[in-house]
Amino acid sequence: MVAGETSGDLLASRLLSGLRPHLPDASMYGIGGAKMAEYGFVSDWPMEKLSVNGLFEVLAHYREIKGIQVALRDRLLAEKPNVFIGVDAPDFNFGLEAQLRQAGIPTVHFIGPSIWAWRGSRIKKIARAASHMLVIFPFEEEIYRKAGIPVTYVGHPLAQVIPMVPDMAAARTALDLPASGTVVAIMPGSRMSELKYNTASFVGAAKLLAQRDPNMRFVAPMAGDRQRRLFSELLSQAGLQDLPIQLLDGQSHTAMAAADAVLVASGTASLEVALYKKPMVIAYKMMRASWEILRHMSYQPWIGLPNILAREFLVPELLQHAATPQALADALWRQLNDSAHQAMLRQRFTEMHHALLRDTANESAQAVLQIIGRQ
């Protein structure tokens, strides 16, 4: 298996939770994170090596990433595992899967890339790479069936993990936060490149919000020690090291449950916030050259998963030059002070939660077991 970032580690761990009881003695290895390791998965390279985003950012790390891909490919071709499972990380995994499949190794890809949002031509590459697709959104099944690609809709693993009614009081107690008062979660991303480009605007917005409400508390979950160090350095560079932001080691779900609202980078985390039924502002920045290319490649007006699933702007999206501290603070302030909007979001996000809820761990595991003839 290969998962390339924190969200992939979480999603893959749900698959492993369903698979491991059926294969208690199987060797499960490749690239993954701490949550996968809980099920006996052995990561041969640090997952963070693949956690790079943006066209030009990837180019800067291309030689190292390509070296890892080639080394893993050679090992798998020699060992002939029963199955290879690529978890998201499409640019890394599809190239690897195509070579393994050509050599007779079954390949499963878990989490389809957003071909419904941009780069739809990738469906041809997917057809060559994946023996079977496991998809997490209901509308994706038809896309792959029409292309002749075997596919199973397994629901979204996070819909099983996250409670339908989050316990805010318990989360605040766990984080030693006051039971009353406003709490905002600051989540600029788990990738180092995301922290580099998003942190200044996110913490600048927190400073402005703290000026409006001096009693407001902030929590910022960090994906690892490297992320925590970089975030702290960026805080100091901005002269905001005294801002009342409580840094957390992981605990992103606890932070979401405890928060009244969340300032979140676009990606899987925005869907997690929706499943916690929280108001949010979605923001994202990247290298300017990458932005100039990518902004012309989208098929739809939304980038945040909650808005994509709703097919409308349920929550604000502020991207690149629009994601200024002032704009983010103003948008989040409105989210915090519009009770009618909050009630509407809770209803819509609850409906979204039900639509994504399946026994993902078991259904995805059964699909893999069938492929390797162990059902």
Rank of each mutant, 00 (worst) to 15 (best):
G30C: 08
K124I: 14
I372C: 03
S201A: 15
K278Q: 08
W333P: 05
R226D: 05
P301W: 03
V219T: 13
D44F: 11
D359L: 12
A130V: 06
H132F: 14
D74A: 06
L230F: 03
D242W: 05
A310S: 13
L23V: 05
I293C: 11
S266R: 08
E97G: 13
L328K: 07
W118T: 05
L134W: 07
M1Y: 10
G120I: 09
E140S: 08
I143S: 03
E57G: 04
G40F: 00
F313G: 14
R73W: 10
P178E: 08
M286T: 02
Y197K: 06
Q347Y: 00
S27T: 15
D225Y: 08
G239N: 06
S114K: 15
Q347N: 05
M222F: 00
I186A: 02
Q69A: 13
G120Q: 05
I115F: 11
L77P: 09
L76Y: 14
Q99E: 15
T350M: 07
R20M: 07
A310F: 01
Q370T: 11
K80A: 09
A117D: 08
Y29K: 11
R217E: 13
V203S: 02
P244V: 08
S51G: 09
I65V: 09
S232L: 04
A130T: 13
N362Y: 14
G40D: 10
A255D: 03
R348C: 00
D44E: 12
M1C: 06
V315K: 00
A174F: 10
I186E: 08
G67W: 02
R374G: 09
H61M: 09
A206F: 03
L50I: 08
G181W: 01
R348G: 00
A185T: 15
E48C: 00
G304Y: 02
P221Y: 05
L59P: 11
L76N: 06
D225L: 11
A185I: 06
N53M: 11
N307S: 07
R374C: 12
L309P: 02
P279A: 01
N215H: 14
V52A: 12
H341D: 01
Q300A: 13
L319D: 12
S13G: 07
P138S: 08
I115D: 08
L235V: 10
R128E: 15
S121H: 11
T199F: 09
G112V: 03
A130C: 05
S51V: 02
V52Y: 10
T360Y: 00
R358C: 12
M133W: 12
L23W: 12
A174V: 06
K285T: 02
Y284F: 14
S17N: 07
A78Q: 14
K277S: 02
R145F: 14
L11S: 11
A170Y: 10
F92C: 09
A185P: 01
L357I: 02
A37K: 02
R311M: 11
K124Y: 01
R145Y: 10
V87S: 03
